[in-house]
Design a protein around this nucleic acid. Structure first.
Lengths: 226, 226
DNA sequence: GTCTATAGGCTGATAGAC
DNA sequence: GTCTATCAGCCTATAGAC
C-alpha cells in the first residue's frame, strides 16, 4: 500500500504521521511473522516474549507497545491459522459433484494437517478457550466458514434428493469433520498407528462413511438406515 | 498384602527392612495418587514437583528419592491411564454380536473420554513422545490391547464371511478409532460444534461407517465398494 | 518509542546437614 | 530418609531513564 500525500510538498505533518503509522504496522507485522516462525519450528509452548524480542532484535518491553500480552499474539496467530486452513480447503470445495468434492476436501484437510502440523496444533489442539472463542464469537470467521464448506457437501446431496428425508447435513458434516480431525490429531499427538498412512486412512474413512462397511452382509438392526 | 515374617519372634532384621520397604512403597503410591488428583483437577501442565511435594507434605527433594524426575511420574500416570481406558472398553468388548459390540465399545470409548477428560488428555493428547513410546515399546500394554479389542470386531465380521474378501480389519479399526478419537478430542479441545452431543455424534459415526450415508442414491465411482 | 533494569513469579533439580 | 537452603534457569510484565 503506497502512502497518499495529504499536502503538496516535502510530505509535511500528515506525511510524517503516516510514515510513523506505517513503520508501526510494519514492526507489528514483523513480530507476528517471527512469532509464527517460532511456533511452527518449536511449537506453541516455546513462544516466549523474551525469545521473540531477541529474534526481532528489540527489547521485550517493546513488544508490549504492539500487543497487550502474549495471549494477544497467540490469538492473532490463531486467527491467521484458521485463514490458512480455510484457504487450503477452498480449492477442493469448488469441485462440482458433491461426493467428489467430499473426497477432495477430505484430502485437502488431511494434507493441511500433515504439512502444517504446528498451525493445526495451534488452531485445533492447543488451547480450548482460544479456538472455542474464535468459533463462537466470529460466526463469519474462517473457522465457521470452513465448516460451512464441508456442510455444503451434504446439503447439496440432500437438495438433489440423494439422501434420506430425515438425514441431517449438519450432523453428517460434524461426523466427517470429527473423523478427519481424529486422523490428523492421532498422527500428530500419538503416532501409534503405524500400519496405515494418514492419506490411506482418510480415503478409507470417506469411502466407508459414504458406502458403509465393504460388502457387509447380515441382518440389520431395526433402527439402521434411518 | 500382609507381611510374611522370616524370623520367629519380634520381627527382626528382615521384618524391619520389610516394613521399610512397605512404607517406601506406600509413599510412592501416595505420591502417585496425589499427582493423579492434581492432573485430573488442573491439567497435566499444572503438575509441578513443588506443588506435588506440598500436597503430600514432604520436601521437594524427597520426591526424587522415589522418582527419577517429573517425567517418570508422568509416565507412570500415563501407563495407569491406559489401564483405566482398557478397563472401560472391556465390558463392551464382551458383547457377542460384532456390530452390537462395535456400538457398545464406541459408546464406552466416548463415555470414558468425556467422564475422564484429563486422563484422556494425558494418554492421547498431551505428549506425543510418551504415548507413542508406550504403544511401541509395550506391545502387550493396555494401549495396544485396547486397539486389539476394537480390531476384534472387524476380524470377527470377516471370519464370519460378513465382509468383503479384500477388506482390512486393521484398517477399519484404525478408521473407527480415529473417528472416535476425533469426536472426543474435538469436544475436549475445541467445543466448537455445539449442535450435536458427543453421544449423538458417536451413534451417527458408527451407523454411517457401518451402513453408509443414509439413503444414498446416485451412481457410484468405479473404485467404491472395494 | 525504545531502552535498561528489575520486580516477582514460576520451574526442575541438587548439596549437604541431620 | 528427610530436611533446609539454594542453584540456575525460565517466564510475563512493568517502571522509569533517555
Amino acid at each position: 500500500m503506497v502512502a497518499v500525500r495529504k499536502v503538496k510538498s516535502y510530505g509535511g505533518v500528515m506525511g510524517i504521521s503516516e510514515r510513523k503509522e506505517r513503520q508501526r504496522a510494519e514492526l507489528r507485522e514483523q513480530i507476528l511473522r517471527v512469532a509464527r516462525e517460532m511456533v511452527v519450528k518449536e511449537g506453541f509452548g516455546a513462544l516466549s516474549m523474551r525469545k521473540l524480542a531477541d529474534a526481532v532484535e528489540y527489547a521485550p518491553a517493546t513488544l508490549y507497545l504492539h500487543f497487550e500480552n502474549r495471549d494477544a499474539i497467540a490469538r492473532e496467530l490463531c486467527v491467521r491459522g484458521f485463514g490458512e486452513f480455510l484457504a487450503a480447503l477452498e480449492p477442493g470445495a469448488r469441485v462440482k459433484d458433491p461426493l467428489e468434492r467430499l473426497m477432495a476436501m477430505a484430502a485437502a484437510y488431511v494434507r493441511f494437517g500433515l504439512e502444517h502440523p504446528e498451525t493445526y496444533r495451534l488452531i485445533f489442539l492447543e488451547d480450548a478457550r482460544l479456538s472455542t472463542e474464535l468459533f463462537r464469537d466470529a460466526p463469519d470467521g474462517a473457522g465457521p466458514r470452513s465448516f460451512a464448506l464441508l456442510a455444503g457437501v451434504f446439503e447439496d446431496l440432500k437438495a438433489a434428493g440423494r439422501l434420506a428425508e430425515d438425514a441431517s447435513p449438519t450432523r453428517l458434516a460434524e461426523v466427517t469433520w470429527a473423523g478427519l480431525h481424529g486422523i490428523v490429531s492421532l498422527k500428530l499427538t500419538c503416532a501409534a498407528f503405524q500400519e496405515t498412512t494418514a492419506e490411506e486412512l482418510q480415503a478409507s474413512l470417506v469411502e466407508t462413511l459414504v458406502y458403509g462397511l465393504p460388502g457387509l452382509k447380515g441382518e440389520k438392526p431395526a433402527r439402521a438406515r434411518r
